[in-house]
């Protein structure tokens, strides 16, 4: 098990990142299983067809399953994190393509907490921060425990200051 905190850019942004819910990793594994199912069927058909030795599709499906179910969820989960400061939210993600976004609370227009069916089964949610603007105007933070997501929303909403003329 890892520490609660990870630190991908020690030299530049020293603030420690909070890791996402472990259920999120489990959910990504389930997604991996779901993605493998069609492959399993295809592999089975190929094996039964008998044109090629049965172990060839077997190995291939096994490899894909290992990557999708064991390797990627772990890697992804480990590379994701967030930091909730007093006035801003920082969201870090990406194994190959790394992205690191910051949204100051006082620029938030409105907030969403969303749950897909799988996410509901695992009790996790996505927190979405919308800012004004046309492109890339929302930042999504997936894999939070539902209660945490709701608490964060309340906290951010409280920061949305009185404004407008």
């Amino acid at each position: 098990m890892h520490d609660d905190l990870i630190d991908p850019v020690p030299d530049i942004d020293p603030e420690p990142l909070t890791q996402l819910s472990p259920s999120y990793r489990t959910m990504m594994r389930v997604q991996g299983v779901l993605a493998t199912l069609p492959l399993l069927v295809a592999g089975g058909v190929l094996a039964l067809a008998g044109d090629i030795p049965a172990w060839v599709p077997g190995i291939a499906v096994l490899l894909v399953a290992l990557v999708l179910i064991a390797y990627l969820p772990m890697k992804r989960w480990r590379h994701r994190g967030y930091h909730m400061a007093a006035d801003r939210l920082r969201v870090v993600r990406g194994v190959m393509f790394h992205s690191d976004s910051v949204v100051p609370f006082n620029r938030v227009q409105h907030l969403d907490v969303e749950q897909g069916p799988l996410e509901r089964a695992f009790g996790i949610a996505r927190l979405i921060l919308h800012t004004a603007g046309t492109h890339g105007s929302s930042v999504v933070l997936p894999g939070l425990d539902h209660a945490v997501a709701v608490d964060m929303r309340e906290e951010i909403r409280a920061h949305v200051r009185r404004e407008m003329l």
Binding site: V108, L111, V113, E114, V150, R153, R157, V160
Partner: peptide, 10 residues
């Protein structure tokens, strides 16, 4: 499920 919150200030 989606829950949207729009603060009055906005």
């Amino acid at each position: 499920r989606s829950a949207r919150s729009v603060p009055y200030d906005r």
